[in-house]
Design a protein around this nucleic acid. Structure first.
Lengths: 214, 214
DNA sequence: TGTACATCAGTGAACGCGCGTTCACTGATGTAC
DNA sequence: TGTACATCAGTGAACGCGCGTTCACTGATGTAC
């Protein structure tokens, strides 16, 4: 339907009445606007303006402003998982290294996109009951769950113990991500990237169950 | 100046032109409004209305809306410390128990006042450069730092190691608090209070440096 | 003890602003014939 | 291949709303004399 119309660059849209790829363009604009203005100043009108389109246009694709923010949050979980996969691919394949990689990817996402992180985890504006958001959120959660399970396979445990392990890992990387994203652990950020990562890895490992570390 | 005027109940304010204790009343109203509406819907007008006062009145005490939210966030850190002190007083006096108590108090605060927790830690609306906010925030941070130092006294370490220990503890309890406050660890909240606390304690202990646990 | 007066802490009306939504419209696209 | 037409995806003006701030004012308080 829209192959002929998909713009390969923003410049192409000039003079076109039908945009052809507005849904995606709006999400890009929303993401940029979120990063610039923060969640508390994010508005439909500013997003439409940044996308170069009338502020009534988004309604055709997202219904209302909540629909747009819901789609944006879903995109956030996609970015989270992408950041984690990047780390997984370059990490050693043993379960501990993979779990650490999941944590580092989580923190990468939080620090690279603090406002998006907050939209996805601390805002009430997106509709988390919407399947389009709920599903990617669950997928992201399951990545951590699977990482913990892979580790636990070496020594089977009760459901409660596995849940506690997931909570422990999740809370640790979430706390690190949130505190770093809001710039509250200044001395960590004052270190070189290598030093900082070494400290983070050491801290993330503490959150794991006490198994033999490989 | 205002001993004669301090109302002991809200009812007393009827018919009085001068309120006598409006600054405190506004902060109470702001706290209640924050809990009810969440940070994204919090407004000066709604706060003034809840306090039973014209919406121009707050300006006399806080300057503008940011001043009010800054004072409110400072109050949040006071509440955080109060919750921690409550836990400290009822915990065993050894350093590990005291540090766990600090963590449980932190989580108590987050779960009892999720919106206040977010105002204090994730919002950009309060002015964190204001000494009236910066100081209580630093006090709260120092409570954790002192708790970790008390533990570390048994085995002196480098500054970096102490910082990493503080970051570890802080991130863990902050992550638990934030995830619980936003209702994302459902299975933990499904447990009885005792079970939940036991799991939390076990998780908090993981964040501590590997010393002999008492 | 009484009075004048400065200061303080309220009121309420008015302001301009940015917001999300609605609506009649219009240009472009795709398809049926 | 050409034409009519339904559908889609934009426009831009208008709407009402809630917001924070400003301002002239007024009632109450405390103090100097």
């Amino acid at each position: 339907m829209n192959e002929k119309v998909v713009p390969t660059s923003k410049a192409e849209k000039i003079g076109r009445y039908h945009h052809g790829n507005l849904k995606e363009t709006l999400l890009e604009a929303a993401q940029a606007e979120l990063a610039d203005q923060g969640i508390e100043k994010l508005s439909l009108r500013a997003i439409a303006k940044r996308a170069g389109v009338s502020h009534a246009a988004p309604a055709h694709h997202f219904g209302d402003v909540n629909g747009l923010l819901t789609a944006l949050a879903a995109r956030g979980f996609g970015m989270l998982m992408a950041a984690q996969k990047l780390r997984l691919d370059t990490a050693r394949p043993d379960p501990v290294s993979q779990l650490v990689a999941l944590g580092l990817g989580y923190i990468d996402f939080a620090t690279a996109n603090p406002a998006m992180f907050r939209l996805a985890f601390s805002s009430k504006r997106p509709n988390f009951d919407d399947p389009g958001l709920h599903e990617p959120a669950k997928l992201a959660y399951d990545m951590l769950g699977d990482g913990v399970s892979a580790l636990r396979d070496q020594s089977p445990a009760s459901d409660l113990a596995v849940m506690a392990d997931v909570a422990s890992m999740w809370a640790m990387v979430h706390g690190l991500g949130d505190l770093l994203a809001s710039g509250r652990i200044k001395y960590l950020q004052a270190l070189t990237a290598e030093e900082c990562e070494a400290v983070l890895i050491e801290i993330i490992r503490r959150a794991m169950p006490s198994l033999e570390k490989s």
